[in-house]
Design a protein around this nucleic acid. Structure first.
Lengths: 233, 233
DNA sequence: ACATTAATTTAACACTAATTTAATATTGAA
DNA sequence: TTCAATATTAAATTAGTGTTAAATTAATGT
């Protein structure tokens, strides 16, 4: 996995912590930007569109919870993940953090290794979507070691081109658009086949089978009784 | 915790009691609305969507039990808590109250302090339900140290993922949606299995067993003769 | 339009995890 | 204490997918 594709915005009012976090995440390859309060965080996020905002809860100017709410209100940042950092014992609750639209809640102190793995786990739930600057259509989707090139209608796995027929390509594109999310069979039918096209029950399975055979078995996981999800390792 | 975020609807036909209750809860910061019978309670609840309805059982027009049933029938008020007030010795049973969908059952006379702490406890332990802003479906439920991630179809316990088969997942989701509320077996059958699916009596027990084994024994408590409830330690 | 080829769907059966049942033990409220 | 309700375990069943190959349909070139 190439972590350098991911932009992370780190927000904390204490310079030491900011540097400590930045250092540890830079070492892993992430592209780091920093801000030192909630107000700054909101504007910087709007400007650079990070994939993840890692933010202290307690900050001057605008606290993390409020900043998160503002970030959530920005349509452009719909898919931006927000993780909160908080010292154990601070009276902000996990509840408030999630209610504000947070995706994870990390308590300090935390070892760099644990922090990094938590963040990697979070980012695995987010694919990198590259849009056409002109018309806003999706050009590429990257997640794990797969790259979906919608323009060339190709899947690239570790530099190797894999060409897929239409339905398989669209099915994979759908699943990979939100890694880890379980897409129900119904959802898949609606979005790949269309609302009022009726096909037999085994059709999806056969497509999944073919996809697995072509891209590898490990990427698509079955959630019995519900549907399928795309996972990275 | 800022109690002024909470709206409480108080319902009693005796004016003195209504004023006594209102006063004591207003002092604590709650936003209070009142109604003087069940009929009024139902319409007022629909209008203001309170977090909690505190209601006498014995009332003219429409008694508390019936009013509660009507409130429960309103989808918008699914997560509204209902607490009954009843004079000791009145012949309404707790069972009837729970069956009507009540969340707590408080017997009069009660000291203001006790009442207030009971109400605070009730509001505190409600789980946090995070809905998708787009389609209104439930995305996450958080209560105690468990997080139900419906999108990923996973239970997260202290950062650890636990995956559950469908019925177990749905059963846990149901119980956790209202911590401390006792769900009767009938209710569980209706909401997890569906109204007209008939399965043997031990089926629920077996699912509870498996859940307890996977998430830990302490979370689900048996209420003999009635059903099960989810508790946070 | 027709033939050709690839893509998609169906059908039949296999396989496995999930669910249910059944049998027996244990529990807790009256 | 008593006994109905629940717990527990293992076995039986079923629902849901996997898999393969064959049939159908759609796309392409001539």
């Amino acid at each position: 996995m190439n972590w350098s594709d991911y932009k992370v915005l780190i927000v904390d009012d204490e310079k030491d912590i900011l540097e400590f976090l930045s250092y540890n995440l830079r070492v892993e390859g992430f592209k780091i930007t920093t801000a030192s309060n909630g107000r700054e965080a909101v504007s910087t996020a709007a400007a650079i569109k990070p994939h993840l905002v890692l933010m202290d809860v307690m900050m001057p100017e605008l606290d993390g919870i409020a900043a998160c709410e503002e970030i959530r209100a920005n349509k452009d940042l719909e898919h931006t993940l927000v993780a909160f950092l908080t010292a154990r014992g601070e009276d902000y609750s996990q509840i408030a953090a999630f209610e504000a639209g947070g995706d994870d809640y990390i308590t300090k102190p935390i070892k760099p290794k644990v922090l990094v793995s938590r963040i990697k786990a979070l980012l695995k739930r987010r694919s990198i979507i590259i849009e056409d600057s002109a018309n806003g259509s999706v050009k590429k989707i990257i997640s794990g070691d797969l790259l979906i090139d919608k323009e060339r209608y190709l899947v690239i796995k570790k530099g190797k081109d894999i060409s897929l027929p239409r339905k398989e390509f669209e099915l994979l594109s759908l699943l990979i658009s939100k890694p880890e999310k379980v897409f129900t069979r119904e959802e898949i039918f609606d979005r790949v086949w269309g609302e009022n096209i009726i096909v037999g029950d085994r059709t999806i399975d056969v497509h999944i089978r073919k996809l697995r055979k072509k891209i590898g078995e490990k990427y698509i996981r079955t959630v019995k009784g519900i549907g399928y999800k795309y996972v990275t390792v």
